[in-house]
Design a protein around this nucleic acid. Structure first.
Lengths: 83, 83
DNA sequence: TGTCAATATGCGCTGTAGCGTATATCTATA
DNA sequence: TATAGATATACGCTACAGCGCATATTGACA
């Protein structure tokens, strides 16, 4: 459920998973965030240049948030989530 | 310790706090991440255009990681965010 | 209050994000 | 397999990140 995300790709994956969980398509999420469908696509595929404000907008629209914490070992649960 | 960060500014604050905890200055952190001291300064002050790759590099150098999770219930501090 | 380390800011530059718009490619499912 | 919905990609554009380099400003302490 909580997902460790150390790379843009992992962040994109978490976003895509939540968007699908909420039964939204990229175009609808784009409307809610005032971003283009193409931009949502880029974020989800892990574009490293994605801007922080863009990311925060998307997370907010999906009712997600970041937590920042010291790096920890992945639990078995989180390993499943990542792979 | 674990820090909720919903905005670029909150993310910057968490980074600055950890950098100081590790007794590093911006220039040293810049060397480790191959970023300029000026860039570290911008990230810490919450520049919304900060790129995701930049952010991930800084977090890695500080031995921090993101966790993405559903927005949590309000703590007393956060109540005004919701209402 | 003088000094030095730390941090913030300025300038010109290159690279690229996100834009509107449009189309191509994938993927269900009828 | 035909087709509609979803996602990826393309083009030209403007805006701005991060760069090297340099300086201004701040902060801590003798």
């Amino acid at each position: 459920m909580d997902q460790i995300a150390r790379t843009p790709k992992q962040i994109g994956d978490a976003i895509r998973r939540q968007r699908r969980k909420l039964d939204l398509n990229q175009a609808t999420l784009g409307e809610r965030t005032k971003l283009r469908q193409a931009t949502i696509s880029a974020v989800e595929s892990g574009a490293p240049g994605t801007q922080l404000s863009t990311l925060c907008d998307v997370l907010a629209a999906l009712d997600l948030e970041f937590v920042i914490r010291p790096r920890s070992k992945a639990t078995p649960d989180e390993i499943e989530d990542i792979f």
